[in-house]
Write a protein that binds this DNA or RNA. Structure first.
Lengths: 110, 110
DNA sequence: CATCTACTTGGCTAATATGCCAAATAGCCA
DNA sequence: TGGCTATTTGGCATATTAGCCAAGTAGATG
């Protein structure tokens, strides 16, 4: 395989891998709505704050979120505003599993 | 957190996790173009055929590909035709890492 | 039937991810 | 300064993943 192609595939995989966790998806969904500090996200997720901090670190290193320290709180926001659209196709995979393969073909993942 | 929401996040995460590997992304890209048998994909990837078979199994279980045995070869194809569009936003994450944050805002991830 | 090819599965090791606790860091406020 | 709150980091146990080899299965073909 082409070296450049390989590097590109690896880069894409890193981003997807960073997203591929329920708590991190929740974070992304919430940050779609508005920025949040770590303790707010921690409360939504219901895990140890250190765990949430590490999830945020994964997302930051992948370039998905950015942080912003204000006072003694750290606010996180999405760096890329199109994450929700990004999910359309994931949804159609899920719908197809449920037998409703129609949605995507009908334009659900445009 | 809402039980239903949790289940939904987990379902999404499973799909993303299935995609989050360079070899599996290559498989998806190639199957965008045309169906392929295991040995063709194996040659493109350059790993052991058993490894590739396991990657395909991951994708199949996630509902991303379907298989079709013809003769003694097994052909794989995408179940969901919108995978390439799905990547637009991943790309904009990567571009933003490279400093070119413009692309997505300018419509690159529509 | 014997054998070949194509593929899958089992088993193993090494690497990576997850999540908690405890300790360290940083800013605020008395 | 001292103590408080918010967050990050280190360390550890456990779980999951990746990849190879070897063995098993299934269809094709002589």
């Amino acid at each position: 395989m082409d070296k450049e192609r390989k590097a590109h595939l690896e880069a894409r995989a890193r981003v997807l891998k960073a997203m591929a966790h329920p708590s991190r998806l929740l974070i992304i969904e919430e940050l779609e709505k508005t920025e949040r500090c770590v303790c707010e996200l921690t409360e939504m997720i219901g895990a140890d704050i250190s765990t949430v901090s590490k999830h945020l670190s994964v997302l930051r290193q992948a370039g998905i979120v950015a942080d912003d320290k204000r006072g003694n709180q750290v606010y996180y926001r999405l760096r890329i505003p199109c994450m929700l659209k990004f999910f359309d196709c994931v949804e159609s995979v899920l719908e197809s599993q449920a037998g409703a393969r129609v949605a995507c073909l009908a334009g659900g993942c445009r």
